[in-house]
Write a protein that binds this DNA or RNA. Structure first.
Lengths: 347, 347
DNA sequence: CTGTTAGCGCATTCAA
DNA sequence: TTGAATGCGCTAACAG
């Protein structure tokens, strides 16, 4: 006996350790389960007092809808699959931060996967995310395995490809033109009067965008009749440490440059550290320019001249565009979140 | 007509845009759905050839189990709820990286929530994560609202509380003693011969661990007959910029210190930048010590003396301990991932 | 505006 | 070693 005066069949109140279900709420509110469901999802017309009764019952029981059941019944779930190349590079947590910001106030939640820059890993993650029938999948770049592309295109799930807009998206692309950013770097350095420009980069086999910036840089220079006078690429992923080493190597090779364009801010900050340690004045001895606009670059004794890439905005904008249109549209869309030069003191 | 020579009832092959289900696989492999389910979950005895047939059918159809259905039926899901205070502070993405590393090779996926250091937000996130009946929930610290604590304790879900071990966990705690880390900082500075020690910190109303380190620092000093000779706390969250400002303010107030202990590395790196910009020699004019062991501190012209906090290990260890024991054990457990002094060149 | 009727796709009893 | 039956908790038609 777990109740007094209640008939055996009365399970309007869930017993002790039992979690309440729609049925419990429905009974307590004296309506059908369906009505409770409608109230919760804010769907269809509900009489104000009915809504009140239902909400009271929900509160009384501390009812929390079972998402698995909801997803199964509706064959769709309030999950946003988020695929990131890496968590080591601060850039991607910042994108995730934007995604999260765009999700506040909704009942969607990000479910994440990290590819480590492997397209095969991305494919596995896509498959396992699709198993949840998510509302959307957000990934980076336009490169996917054939199987991955087929899965993405074949699903009715909305797809966003972030960071880059220099190619044709499956559904939605949000980011900036890295090629244009590279050209802008070239123009800036030339305008500032530098003419012997070197490039310091990291391994770009997995980082297509770094390569696009490099190409833009070269194009931008050649438009003014210049070209790179020296370049050095490490075989490691980008990091401050690598940047420091790479600039040191480039200079040790005797490169006669007056400015160094780096593949990104991590590398550039490392370069700055090398200059400090080596007693090389910046920018008079050597000008430095990065890409991304990370906080750390702006706290250097001389703020780094760089290109702001708006990572947060990329994530937030993507989510907003995705949630605005739950169905995948006929036409793919591209949203350019742009970039801007941060005029620091190093170039 | 969508097939030739096939009877109307033959749906062993899902039609065009239809995603295959267990039933499709079962029919193709000529076994019951049940058997397919067993093969997939590796449960119960299966005849080798049956397994082969089933796997072949799975591959042929490109079958991917519907997670919502599985979760509903088993009332548990391969989700790890991960609650982080922030994504702006690199420390938490690193913990997430550890969690992700511990999840590789499993079918669990992290579903994340960000509290922005608000306990009320944490409570909401806990409730919405519990709606998925996750395998575990990982959060930080021991402070939760009463309702949140009730939910966590009441659920049969495994709970890990990360970062800190200076209190009693609900189920599992993984981290380090921040109080001890503070004492270690004090001991290190004193051993190095510094005696006029100042403290530079950030807002700790939401960051209990920074406060614990501060208390440990004070205790450690007093054990050697010393005490802080100056301190400055900004009202902002920690950042390099704030660290730079804070040290500048402390020194502008005329503090006569020979060493500054910072609340963390972000603040300490900012302090280093101030010294560089102000022409103050480190460590001879002023010694600096941080906490965390971030990469950026190690790339400064002089590597930062700091305390390594093993964020990656915290995340990875937590996952491993959680997955090892799916049921919540009777006794709560504490795993100390420890810390170690990084003997840099700034103190 | 509300209730009734059917599943969603799988895991979990039980039998065989 | 395998199969048949049952239901997880909810949403989605359709009536009324």
């Amino acid at each position: 006996m777990d109740g007094e005066g209640r008939s055996i069949a009365d399970d309007s109140v869930p017993s002790a350790a039992e979690t309440p279900t729609l049925a419990h709420v429905a009974r307590l509110a004296k309506v059908s389960e369906n009505t409770v469901s409608r109230v919760i999802r804010n769907k269809g017309p509900i009489a104000p007092e009915t809504r009140l009764r239902v909400n009271a019952a929900i509160d009384a029981l501390g009812y929390v809808p079972n998402r698995a059941a909801g997803s199964l019944a509706s064959s769709s779930s309030p999950i946003i699959g988020v695929i990131l190349p890496s968590l080591s590079n601060i850039v991607f947590p910042e994108v995730l931060r934007g995604i999260n910001a765009g999700l506040i106030g909704t009942s969607y939640r990000p479910m994440i996967g990290v590819t480590d820059y492997s397209l095969e890993t991305e494919q596995d993650i896509i498959s396992s995310l699709l198993a949840w029938h998510p509302a959307a999948i957000i990934t980076t770049g336009f490169e996917h395995t054939t199987a991955a592309r087929r899965m993405l295109e074949g699903s009715r799930v909305r797809i966003a490809e972030l960071m880059d807009i220099d190619d044709r998206p499956i559904d939605l692309a949000v980011g900036l033109s890295h090629r244009e950013a590279g050209r802008a770097m070239a123009r800036h350095l030339v305008q500032r009067g530098y003419s012997r420009i070197g490039y310091v980069g990291h391994d770009w086999t997995a980082d297509r965008r770094a390569r696009l910036r490099y190409e833009g840089l070269c194009e931008g220079l050649s438009e003014t009749g210049l070209s790179l006078v020296a370049e050095y690429r490490t075989e490691a992923p980008s990091s401050t440490l690598e940047g420091r080493r790479a600039l040191a190597s480039l200079l040790a090779d005797g490169a006669a440059i007056d400015a160094a364009a780096f593949s990104n801010d991590d590398m550039a900050v490392g370069g700055f550290m090398h200059c400090m340690a080596a007693g090389m004045p910046v920018p008079d001895g050597l000008a430095l320019m990065g890409f991304n606009g990370l906080e750390i670059g702006q706290v250097l004794p001389k703020p780094l001249t760089t290109v702001l890439s708006n990572r947060f905005a990329i994530g937030k904008t993507a989510i907003e565009a995705l949630l605005e249109t739950p169905q995948r549209p006929q036409e793919a869309r591209i949203i350019d979140t742009g970039f801007s030069i941060i005029e620091g003191a190093t170039a």
